[in-house]
Amino acid sequence: MIINVGGRTDIVNYYTPWLLNRLKEGFAYSRNPFARENVYKLSLKPEDVDCLLFCSKNYRPILDHIGKIDKDYNILCNYTITAYGKDIELKVPTIDQSVKTLERLSDTVGRNKILWRYDPILLTDKYTVERHLETFEYMAEKIAPLVYRCIFSFVDMYKKVEENMPEIIPFTDEDKVRLLKGIGEISKNCNLYTQSCATDESYEKYNIHAAGCTTREILEHAHNVVYKNVRGRGIRKNCHCIPSRDIGAYNSCLSECKYCYANRKPDIPRKVIKLHDEKSPLLLGHLRPDDNLIETKAISYIEPMQTTLFDF
């Protein structure tokens, strides 16, 4: 079972004490966001977890603990560092601050367990194609030696994104081609393996590889084990990732990114944070009398080790 620590909210940045308590106790509850009476109990015991899949825009709160977690679990760290400033990502560290944190993270767990996420790519009057390429090159030169590969995606224009960020300028075909060519050339010059995310389109002619950020290839490279051939079935359209179970909750990320997919409105997290109790098995609130608690069976995606005569 792959445990997603960052799909619904940035747990690492804002809820590390809660996460450490959950790992210590060996389980967490996860409320179904669509059938809220259903609460799943997920084992966090190392023997039941194939991978702790982290995704965050700031690993500083967990740096002092990530080495110990890495010894106990297979981990994969997605680190999102974009071109945007405080005008779009209100509470996210600056690029240079993030790179310093990434340096420490890479020194601690190894570059093979880190993916740099440059996403989502969106256009405004300020963040033009040229601005993206200039910033991507600046970052790629610094980040390439610290990570296994780079993953990017173009913004998904969900209704809530359109409402919260009306200044987004739609991509033209020419915009996309210029970005793809530029990102591909910069990646080649920096010896950075770059791939797309959440798309069925092929960008191979631009030196950009196929989509999938939690694939067998990536996991096996990170953990030196063999994963089963599990069909990709992620939560976003055209997602090719191995399925995972999320222990977070929507509408609880405090970064206030204007393009956020996981918050309906930017002000909601400031209200729901009052429900957070770092001692509770649930990220938000507690189990209610009418909740349906469901014990989740831990199904491993890792192939059992093959015994040979040389093992005796």
Rank of each mutant, 00 (worst) to 15 (best):
L90W: 11
K91S: 14
K91F: 15
K91V: 00
V92N: 05
P93D: 05
T94K: 04
D96K: 08
Q97Y: 04
Q97I: 01
S98T: 01
V99F: 08
T101A: 15
E103Y: 12
R104D: 06
L105D: 10
G110I: 04
G110D: 11
R111C: 03
R111L: 08
I114T: 03
L115A: 12
R117Y: 09
P120R: 12
P120Q: 12
L122Y: 12
L122F: 15
L123F: 02
K126C: 05
Y127P: 00
V129F: 11
E130F: 00
L133A: 07
E134I: 01
F136K: 01
F136T: 00
E137W: 01
Y138D: 10
E141P: 02
E141T: 13
K142R: 13
I143L: 07
I143F: 10
A144K: 06
A144S: 13
P145I: 08
V147D: 09
V147A: 02
V147M: 07
V147K: 05
Y148K: 14
Y148F: 12
R149G: 09
C150S: 15
F152Q: 03
F152A: 09
F154C: 04
F154Q: 02
D156T: 12
D156M: 09
M157R: 15
Y158M: 13
K159V: 06
K160H: 15
E162Q: 15
E162G: 04
E162C: 14
E162Y: 09
E163C: 05
N164P: 06
I168D: 05
T172I: 02
D173L: 06
E174N: 01
D175I: 03
V177M: 06
R178D: 02
L180K: 00
L180T: 01
G182F: 11
G182C: 04
I183Q: 00
I183L: 07
G184I: 01
G184E: 02
I186F: 13
S187I: 03
K188C: 07
K188I: 14
C190Y: 13
